[in-house]
Design a protein around this nucleic acid. Structure first.
Lengths: 343, 343
DNA sequence: CAGTTATGTGAACACGCGTGCATATTTCGA
DNA sequence: TCGAAATATGCACGCGTGTTCACATAACTG
């Protein structure tokens, strides 16, 4: 129980001294509170001497305007919610790092939710108590309810990695289907015929699209997947998936729904099964995370352009803030096949 | 310029409709605004029928109390600043993911700053405009000025990965020196004598301590580092550092200040120089990131216990919030040598 | 010098909320 | 039936800001 402490005790505990306020500065500097406010407002009428005196006093006292109180007047809070699912997928981490960096650079402050799958809905609900300028959501399975909530609260939502068909929602996503078609085509052209697939969580829209891309391209060649396993987008998940796959079938190629699983699969195939890649078995991933380019892996993969995605998210954000009424925009980002050493 | 748009234009742009407020709910439900407030306050006197009616109306309108306005009354904001330096170091990413997850689980909402080194000070200054419950800082070189600012604003600061000698600041850090002593001892015991060192940015306190640990343990054996290179804690940095190191000297072992560089060094030694690890050359890292355990690397390293660190940070946070006046606490976390295949 | 404009300035208000206070209504005991 | 205790409710205040408004002073103009 968090509330089992006696009330008297809690009352006795000295209430944290509030932070220094504009009124404090005013009193110390011997000016009106209005003057303090004006001292921090560029372009406001205020005697230059007095302004300097106020700023000096403010500095001494460590005062700075409370952004939250200011936001009550209608100012933007510059607070942006960022929701990212389980961070076990390295691509999510790279996305988060890039996004945080970009947001900071343009003076937005991200409140980050993520890491844990369970309780995420609840966390998002809590975070909506804050007057966010916007909410940025990375793929995942967060549903329509979220959109409704945000709409009612006038908080714009931007999806990254997932297309939402909603008239007022912005989103940027990769052409997953096309990317997988490119990957499978490459394998077919180099003579592979028994092609397996390691997928991610089936609820994710990215997974559905990638799976569809693989299946449809194979069908066009008169083939079906030699084997198919579902996993969790993680390195370890890729390893176990590969184990299962090799028990069921003996494919000559495996397409993985993301790089983390592809690396796990590659590692298992090489180190545990003593297979030679790509001679015995080709492996292709999706995302092009930094590790894919490391010499140990040299993974052939489909690039899911990170920088472009983040740039588009920021553009959508700024456009939306400039014009809240504009219709929702869907930005598609082009994948690119990166040929390395595993195909 | 962000301000080059004509003022008239900005005024013409329809001011974003404010979010639904308690007064709106009150009017719609036909009750007083106080009743709405009480409906959301557990334990407040309010007719149960009326409470239900208010909650129903609130749900329909998508109302929820504005946490920021509430915080003006003295309530905690549950907002916590999190500052992490360049995220090119995978350990930082792991730390961030774990911390965010833990904070979310206990109802704190992290405002994350990081990714970019330049402008970080400025960002931190900006973020202090918000009434944060606390500020959590990951290592780095953020200085005394920050502490002064936060003290004046009554915002507690918690350092992770760095010891600060300040009477009212909490911090949790790893015994870097001890960890390196363990690493070097292992190498010496297996007969290595020409031991090189790849360090991180010299301004970081963790780097200073790790370097000192290596140098002092070597000195105790009557040795000095066979070679010494400074890099940037990244994988690529580790590669170039290894190149430089092998030009200057031919060590029989290399200690790296973190795992990312160790993996880069390992990769370069194996793939570019055709060295056999550990026969030709031993390599030891620091941190024990997830990748260190992957079969491709199987890196011997010093574990910098992540979970324990994050748990301690959260404990310090909660203790500090419960008792703002308590003296600062320094928690030291024990490193542990993890013997794998590269020594 | 009178009249107009530019420049400073403080009081007062609004923002959205929780809560103390005074009052209104109901419940209970005798 | 009456008083007291318990329950329910609206008004008003304050939290820390930015900004409008009315007003005071200074600086020009003719």
């Amino acid at each position: 129980m968090a509330h089992d402490r006696p009330l008297a005790d809690r009352a006795a505990q000295p209430r944290r001294r509030a932070r220094v306020t504009a009124a404090d500065v005013a009193k110390t500097a011997g000016v009106s509170r209005s003057a303090v406010s004006r001292a921090f407002t560029p372009g406001a009428y205020l005697d230059e001497d007095k302004r300097q005196r106020v700023l000096k006093t403010a500095m001494d006292l460590g005062y700075r305007p409370n952004a939250l109180a200011a936001s009550l007047q209608g100012a933007a809070t510059d607070l942006v919610g960022v929701v990212v699912g389980g961070l076990s997928n390295p691509y999510d981490s790279e996305w988060l790092a890039a996004l945080v960096s970009a947001l900071n650079a343009s003076g937005k402050w991200p409140i980050v939710l993520g890491g844990q799958a369970e309780g995420l809905d609840e966390s998002v609900t809590s975070i909506l108590s804050y007057p966010l300028d916007a909410l940025i959501v990375r793929g995942g399975s967060l549903g329509e309810a979220l959109i409704d909530n945000c709409t009612k609260l006038n908080i714009p939502v931007i999806f990254s990695g997932r297309v939402i068909s909603h008239p007022a929602i912005d989103c940027v996503a990769c052409r997953n289907h096309m990317g997988m078609v490119q990957a499978v085509t490459l394998l077919l052209e180099s003579g592979r015929r028994r092609i397996g697939y390691i997928g991610g969580p089936p609820t994710l829209s990215s997974e559905k699209e990638r799976l569809a891309g693989v299946v449809e391209r194979l069908a066009k060649a008169g083939l079906t997947p030699a084997a198919q396993v579902t996993s969790d987008y993680s390195f370890d998940g890729g390893k176990s998936a590969m184990r299962a796959l090799l028990q069921d079938a003996s494919p000559d190629a495996v397409v993985c729904a993301n790089d983390a699983m592809a690396l796990g699969a590659l590692s298992f195939a090489r180190n545990t099964c003593n297979l030679t890649v790509p001679d015995d078995l080709a492996i292709i991933g999706f995302d092009d995370i930094a590790m894919a380019d490391w010499a140990e892996f040299d993974l052939t993969t489909v690039r899911n352009p990170l920088e472009e995605t983040v740039n588009e998210v920021l553009r959508l954000l700024e456009d939306r803030l400039a014009n809240p009424q504009k219709p929702g925009e869907v930005v598609m980002v082009e994948p690119m096949l990166v040929k390395r050493g595993t195909h």
